[in-house]
């Protein structure tokens, strides 16, 4: 066990855990930030996507010891009440079914649009293909992303 000082959603957080613990479980178990989801644990589904210094990152394979002072943003930190343009687009397009994948989808989309405000269809697919939606909401996800890029 070791103490780590983390910067999560703009707040300093201190956790005392095994350094190998993936950030996913630190968020969910220690910090009770449960918006970040467990899906596969092997960086293949995107349910656990967070931003590490603004870059979309799979938290399920990210040891807490590797984070240092980098800023972590989770879905809870994207905006409190859903005012982020990506969240607004998700609401407007009534994207979700079970909703379980959508936190990860939104985090991936927000990171994509931050780097490229007008992604092509192909760029959207490349950026988003790491995020699985078992319910099959891909068409709506893509439409929602396109609607943000148009504004």
């Amino acid at each position: 066990m070791a103490v780590f000082n983390l910067n999560v959603n703009g707040t300093k957080q201190k956790v005392d855990v095994d350094g190998a613990t993936p950030m996913l479980w630190v968020l969910r178990d220690q910090l009770k930030l449960t918006g970040t989801k467990y899906g596969c644990g092997i960086a293949q589904c995107g349910a656990c996507t967070i931003h590490l210094n603004g870059v979309a990152t799979r938290s399920c394979i990210l040891p807490v010891s590797s984070i240092g002072s980098k800023a972590i943003t989770t879905i809870e930190g994207l905006s409190e009440l859903g005012e982020h343009p990506v969240q607004k687009a998700w609401i407007e397009h009534n994207v979700a079914q079970c909703g379980y994948c959508q936190n990860g989808q939104i985090m991936a989309a927000a990171a994509l649009l931050k780097n490229n405000s007008k992604p092509s269809e192909e760029q959207i697919e490349t950026a988003m293909k790491g995020n699985i939606c078992r319910c099959g909401t891909y068409v709506r996800i893509k439409e929602a992303i396109k609607s943000v890029s148009r504004t």
Partner: peptide, 13 residues
């Protein structure tokens, strides 16, 4: 709209 949408997109559902 799905009544849980806002909660679902803010990680609170």
């Amino acid at each position: 709209a799905n009544v849980d949408l806002i909660k679902m997109v803010t990680g609170k559902a």
